[in-house]
């Protein structure tokens, strides 16, 4: 064995390896690209193009796609392309932000419950059970109507009610990780509770959560859509993909004007799918045992 010079040994960094593995996952990269593209379009397109989602074109009600309105107009003459872009802003914002809220509440609570057990576990997990025993859409409807429907109330309510799935998953993972001897080894060398959780338990309990993060983002977008569809979410004239579908409730529009509901519906499907593909890839890439 040749003796390599100590300073010559290159650190094959973990991040590098994760990126390489992610690159090999074609669907994940496709999902990521679509997602990033979507965000870029939604954020920057209104700055470049002159889009107004609120103004009515009195010359064109219910107009099919044409040169002036690429995706046509709705029943009161608003440009559907502009509404699709602005609606994307709201839907993506609600999806991402509410998942963040769930994550911030759920992960620490799940960790505490799994690590300390006993009374902490009982309190946290039983509260989670109570939360889960309510039919969520009804509870969300009630809370949103109490807070008054708006983007922010919808985001907060979806986010706060979503913590249980993260808490339960993390909790279950922590329980299984705690059985591993490396947790005992951390105690044997005198690692504090805090560092044991951060360096030994969290990294081993978190990756399966990533897939849930993506699912949760997707489902938050859908929940926001359903709320808006029911008229309890984002309020007109503000646009979201959900309330664009809401506008298409009547059978005449459904059958005669597919340009009203097809684009927002497709946008939801494509977004949700691409997020899920990406999450799947990230989970695999983060596992050091997983070979490309």
């Amino acid at each position: 064995m040749s003796q390599p010079k100590k300073e010559k040994i290159q650190k094959a960094s973990y991040a590098r390896e994760v990126i390489d593995k992610l690159k090999a996952h074609k669907l994940a990269i496709l999902g990521l690209c679509i997602w990033v593209l979507e965000i870029l379009i939604v954020v920057f397109l209104p700055m470049i193009m002159n889009l107004d989602p609120y103004v009515s074109d009195y010359a064109a009600f219910d107009a099919p796609p044409s040169d002036t309105h690429i995706l046509g107009t709705d029943s009161i003459g608003r440009d559907l392309f502009a509404r699709l872009i602005y609606g994307g802003r709201t839907s993506l914002l609600v999806g991402i932000l509410s998942t963040m809220i769930s994550l911030i509440i759920g992960v620490p609570l799940g960790l505490l419950a799994g690590y300390y057990r006993g009374i902490v576990e009982t309190v946290i997990m039983r509260v989670a059970d109570v939360f889960m025993s309510f039919p969520s859409i009804v509870l969300i409807l009630v809370l949103v109507s109490v807070l008054g429907p708006s983007i922010w109330s919808v985001t907060i309510v979806i986010g706060v009610l979503g913590w249980t799935s993260f808490a339960r998953l993390i909790y279950a993972n922590v329980l299984s990780v705690m059985e591993k001897e490396y947790v005992e080894s951390a105690r044997a060398v005198g690692t504090s509770d805090f560092w044991t959780i951060v360096k030994y338990i969290l990294p081993n309990a978190l990756p399966p959560i990533l897939i849930t993060v993506t699912f949760q983002t997707a489902s938050a977008i859908i929940t926001e859509s359903s709320l808006s569809f029911l008229g309890m979410g984002v309020q007109p004239p503000e646009a979201s993909w959900g309330n664009m579908l809401h506008d298409a409730q009547s059978i005449t529009i459904l059958s005669r004007s597919p340009w009203v509901w097809l684009p927002p519906g497709l946008a939801i499907v494509v977004t949700v799918l691409s997020i899920n593909f990406f999450g799947d890839g990230v989970r695999d890439a983060l596992d050091p045992k997983m070979k490309i």
Binding site: Y14, K180, E181, Y182, E184, S185, A186, A188, V189, G190, T191, S192, W195, K199, Y200, P203, N204, P288, K289
Partner: peptide
């Protein structure tokens, strides 16, 4: 200190050898 029986489960799979062996030094 303790040396464990099962070296599969007694080494944190998400730490490098440097961090694993150096963990006691870091703690102290």
């Amino acid at each position: 200190q303790i040396i464990f029986q099962d070296s599969y489960s007694s080494l944190n799979p998400r730490m490098t050898v440097e961090d694993l062996v150096g963990a006691p030094l870091e703690v102290f």
